[in-house]
Design a protein around this nucleic acid. Structure first.
Lengths: 125, 125
DNA sequence: CATCTTACTTTCCTGGAGGTTACTAAACAC
DNA sequence: GTGTTTAGTAACCTCCAGGAAAGTAAGATG
């Protein structure tokens, strides 16, 4: 490239780190069901395995299982056993760490909402 | 479902809208190259078609072309013709609207960075 | 002890995102 | 007028996320 592309001031190593960080976050939120599970857990506080089939209509047990495993591995959700006289029930809940991702999701939602307004506006032009 | 899942206060219709908004935003940022293109445009201000092959190593012309088209359709980037005495050059640039997505990307990056620290910390335990 | 529910796992399959390569059309360079 | 660069498009292929359906194991229920 004979004619260098003009870079802005930011240091290249930092830029690279930021690329990776963004990649990480998107990988974490991508997929059809992940964020859906997180939003529902935020909304309902705790859910059992079977509950997800009601609140996330269309998800299959295989996919649910693997998504829950992934989210747990990333410490965004956790299992909690509740002991009743007759049986133990496994619930899924958000972790404290998920509080952070909640602010992230809100940012994405706000953008989505304002973007939708934008699109509707530009369609009416 | 005999035993209703306990909902929090938020109205269901609003929740649904927020789901859709989040879906929209993630769809917009997903994919292997989209955000990469946006970050590079932010960094370099303007890029030609061929430039992307240097800054986004590994992207193919087919994919680049389709990603640029999508981003343009969503009004995050725009083409700009620059006239020199000898020829016209097509540049791609961010739109004003992309300013908003820039704050979104920053939020995602910040989460990714702090999350990475978190992971490193928990590995050392 | 037979059946139901819950919480999964296993196997198999498909659509589509993204890669590879080659092609084209226009402008420029020599 | 022959090669080179730019800005794509077209045809084809591959891999894997996610879906469908069935199976399993453990406890509750009757």
């Amino acid at each position: 490239m004979e004619k260098k592309i003009k870079p802005c001031t930011e240091n290249e190593e930092i830029l690279k780190q930021r690329f990776l960080a963004l990649r990480d976050t998107l990988d974490l939120l991508n997929g059809k069901w992940r964020f859906c599970i997180l939003l529902n857990l935020h909304y309902y506080e705790k859910l059992r395995f079977k509950d997800f089939f009601e609140v996330s209509e269309g998800i299959s047990p295989k996919v649910l299982s693997s998504e829950l495993t992934t989210l747990e591995a990333h410490q965004l959700i956790k299992k909690k056993l509740e002991h009743t006289p007759t049986q133990d029930i496994t619930y899924y809940m958000l972790t404290e760490h998920a509080g952070e991702i909640w602010t992230v999701l809100n940012t994405l939602i706000e953008f989505g909402l304002s973007n939708r307004k934008e699109v509707i506006k530009s369609l009416s032009d």
